Computed example of a mutant assay.
Amino acid sequence: LLEHYVKRRQTLLEVAAEAGMSPSNVAKWARTHNIPLRPRGGASHNESLRIRDTARQAPRILRPALNGLAAEERIRRFATASTYPTLGAAAADMGINESSLSSQISRLARDLGGPLHERAEQSHPMKLTPLGKRVAKAATAWLATRDELAEEMPSA
C-alpha cells in the first residue's frame, strides 16, 4: 500500500483494483497503518498527477497552458481548429459545440498571454496571429510526437 499509494501516487481505486479489494477497504487499511489519505479528486486523479511531467516535456511556448485538467485537449483542439477557415467549421467536424471550442481557445490564449486568432469575417477566413502560428506549429509537432510514442507503447 505504501509503495503504490504513496510512492507511485496511484489512486485508491487503482490500488484496490490491483489488490482485488474495495476502495473503502484499502482506505481502512491505510488508516490502520497511519498512511495519510489524499483528498478526493484533484491531485489523486491520474491526469492531475501527470500534468507536471507533461509540461516538462512540452515545447516552452506551450508550458504555461499545461496547467490543469484537459490542458492537452485544449491544445489539441486549437491545433486542429487552426487548419479550418472558421471555428464553426472546426467545431462541426470535431463534433463539439462552437461555443465550447471558442471558450477553450480563449482560455488557451489567456494562459499563453495573447490572442491566437482573428475571427473569420464574411468572406475572409479565420486568421492566426503571430503567436497563434507559433503555438499551432509547436502544438502540431509536439502532439504528433506524443501520438507516435503512444502508438509504440504496448497496451497493458
Rank of each mutant, 00 (worst) to 15 (best):
A30C: 15
R31A: 14
T32Y: 03
I35C: 07
I35H: 02
I35W: 09
P36V: 06
P36G: 11
P39A: 14
G42N: 15
S44M: 12
H45P: 09
N46A: 15
E47H: 14
S48C: 15
S48F: 11
R50N: 14
R50P: 10
R50W: 08
R50A: 12
I51A: 06
I51N: 09
I51C: 06
D53E: 15
A55D: 10
A55K: 09
P59K: 14
P59M: 14
R60W: 01
R60D: 14
R60G: 07
L62F: 03
R63K: 13
G68I: 13
L69N: 13
L69H: 13
A70M: 15
E72F: 02
E72Y: 03
E72T: 12
E72N: 10
E72K: 14
E73G: 11
E73M: 15
R74Y: 12
R74E: 05
I75W: 02
I75T: 03
R76F: 06
R77D: 06
F78S: 04
A79K: 01
T80E: 02
T80Q: 10
Y84M: 05
P85V: 02
P85L: 01
T86L: 04
T86M: 11
T86D: 11
L87E: 05
A92T: 05
A92G: 04
D93I: 10
D93C: 04
M94E: 03
M94C: 02
M94Q: 06
G95Y: 00
G95E: 10
G95H: 14
I96Y: 04
N97G: 10
E98I: 04
S99H: 05
L101F: 03
L101W: 00
S102A: 03
S102D: 08
S102F: 01
S103E: 08
Q104S: 12
S106H: 06
S106Y: 12
S106L: 11
L108T: 02
L108V: 05
A109P: 13
A109W: 02
D111T: 08
G113Q: 04
G113T: 06
G114P: 05
P115I: 09
L116K: 00
H117L: 08
H117W: 00
E118Y: 09
E118D: 03
R119H: 13
R119D: 12
R119F: 09
R119S: 06
R119C: 13
A120K: 05
E121C: 08
S123W: 02
M126H: 00
K127Y: 05
K127F: 02
L128P: 07
T129L: 08
P130N: 13
L131D: 00
L131A: 08
G132Y: 04
R134Q: 01
R134H: 10
R134A: 05
V135K: 08
K137A: 09
K137Y: 01
A139W: 02
A139D: 00
A139I: 03
T140R: 05
T140C: 07
